[in-house]
């Protein structure tokens, strides 16, 4: 309720002024980059949520056919979880100052993410072999669209990951690395959640 309480203050009153004069400008006690990432997750969430709503609305029409999810998706999900776990581990290590271990796990996380993307492509291939294409049924269209968008977001994350790897190689100081690792980890977890929600929806319908 902090924000609402804040908005009721009367900034012109002298007693309020005394308090306000002491306040530093940041609204959130976080590094700017982290605030930026969190703010960025809002439009992304809006994007995926709207896709989900469109999916549910489109489902109610008579031509909808249930998609038989390829079994490969289960493995891909496991790989994505591993990817997130590896990054989480590297984040904990960098907090403890262990740069070497952090490096290993951070690399591992990225490799798993690439594996996930490869797996998704293989799943597409599986579907195509079954005669399921983007235009055969709206459920198929949504599946390709979902996975493509999620994959693109992950690919964007991998660019940031690549830049961090580059920094690690270049021997950038730990403080700086820590921020990059944390940002990657947050983003990874977020995309994992998005994927789990989407996969759950695909299974349920």
């Amino acid at each position: 309720m902090g924000i609402f309480h804040h908005l009721t203050r009367k900034p012109w009153l002298p007693e309020q002024s005394e308090i306000d004069n002491q306040v530093s400008g940041g609204a959130v006690a976080l590094q700017t980059a982290k605030v930026g990432l969190r703010v960025f997750l809002f439009p992304i969430s809006a994007l995926f949520t709207l896709f989900l709503i469109a999916y549910l609305m489109r489902m109610s029409f008579s031509d909808w056919q249930t998609l038989h999810d390829p079994w490969l998706l289960w493995i891909n999900t496991a790989v994505l979880v591993l990817s997130s776990l590896a990054l989480q581990r590297s984040r904990m290590l960098v907090d403890g100052g262990e740069v070497t271990g952090m490096r290993t796990y951070f690399m591992l996380g990225g490799v798993f993410a690439f594996a996930f993307l490869g797996g998704q492509l293989a799943a597409w291939q599986q579907l195509a072999d079954m005669g399921v294409y983007a235009d055969t049924n709206p459920s198929h269209s949504f599946f390709y669209l979902f996975t493509a968008l999620h994959g693109l977001h992950l690919l964007g994350g991998l660019v940031a990951w690549g830049r961090t790897v580059f920094k690690i190689k270049a021997g950038v100081d730990v403080e700086h690395l820590r921020l990059s690792v944390e940002l990657c980890t947050i983003y990874w977890h977020y995309l994992l959640v998005v994927w789990v929600v989407m996969f759950g929806l695909l299974l349920a319908t």
């Binding site: 902090g2 924000i3 804040h6 306040v23 530093s24 940041g26 609204a27 959130v28 006690a29």
Partner: peptide
């Protein structure tokens, strides 16, 4: 979470 940060 949105309150002014008096310290840092």
């Amino acid at each position: 979470m949105m309150v002014d940060v008096p310290v840092a």
